[in-house]
Design a protein around this nucleic acid. Structure first.
Lengths: 149, 149
DNA sequence: CCAAATAAATTGCATAATGCAAGTATTTTT
DNA sequence: AAAAATACTTGCATTATGCAATTTATTTGG
């Protein structure tokens, strides 16, 4: 995708800056799938219940890679299947995502958020954060390999 | 605006739910202006440095009002100038916004976020939150009046 | 009281983003 | 070698956004 006119509003505002990078309908859902469902392949992201289109998915993965929020690597066991994983910059979005979850779970009468997870999140956000991050790092190490291109 | 097809993805995911409501380029900036700059009038929002178009602003104010994130009231002193203010549901977005600020300030080399604010935010997020909210409630009480329509 | 100014939209039109279905290229499996 | 799998890409329709000008209602100044 060409650099859009609306990117980089350049106001200096940190909120506007963040929104310019992940403030669209899909980016955080891709990251959600990585964090909470352990997804790593193009095809896995396609299967999410929100049904992202493959061209949009390809575009978002490219943008997130360019922003170094995710990283695209070769799969040593399968040449046609790249592995996407979160960078530290991407993992840094987790506190924000947890707040999205809290707000959404509170205001959506039909929320499917697990009660136990919400309880834990309310009770000790920081502990839960550490738990999720350490899990993430553990599993991602299993798939270390060379960066694509 | 007519209800768009992409609204309400209905996956039950609290992240998707939240994104469907405030996951666009402008909604959180309007809320930012209310929280941090005390803006209350249509014309004030138009002046933000990101330059929102008046039709988009009107649309977003309407949606946020429908979602009960903001509330539109008569100005007792000026009939042509409605007053927009945050509801408790809107104020509940603040923790998320603070995380956007932290992430943006960290990753934008040209950030204009005040250092002192960021320092405070890192050191004691909850205290800062309480401080901002109590300030908000104080000033909004000055402008209490009847709901429009 | 009337004309000018102000405020909040609304409208028409151009551009950009998204969504969908189908197709292509490459790699792996049989 | 053929079939299946995987990751895209393409073409086209629909929807959202952006911009300038206009409209409606209210308020202000003479």
């Amino acid at each position: 995708m060409a650099k859009s006119k609306t990117d980089y509003r350049q106001s200096g505002c940190p909120i506007a800056f963040t929104l310019d990078i992940i403030g669209d309908r899909w980016s955080l859902l891709i990251i959600r799938d990585m964090v909470f469902l352990g997804k790593r392949y193009f095809g896995e992201f396609l299967e999410s219940s929100e049904k992202i289109a493959s061209n949009i998915l390809a575009d978002r993965l490219k943008r997130l890679d360019e922003q170094e929020i995710i990283s695209k690597k070769d799969n040593p066991h399968n040449k046609k299947q790249a592995i996407y994983s979160l960078t530290d910059k991407g993992i840094g979005l987790l506190p924000m995502i947890l707040e999205l979850i809290l707000w959404g779970a509170k205001h959506d009468p039909k929320t499917a958020a697990p009660k136990e997870f919400i309880r834990k999140l309310k009770k000790d956000r920081d502990a839960l954060l550490i738990e999720i991050v350490s899990n993430l790092k553990k599993t991602s190490d299993l798939y270390e390999s060379k960066k694509v291109k």
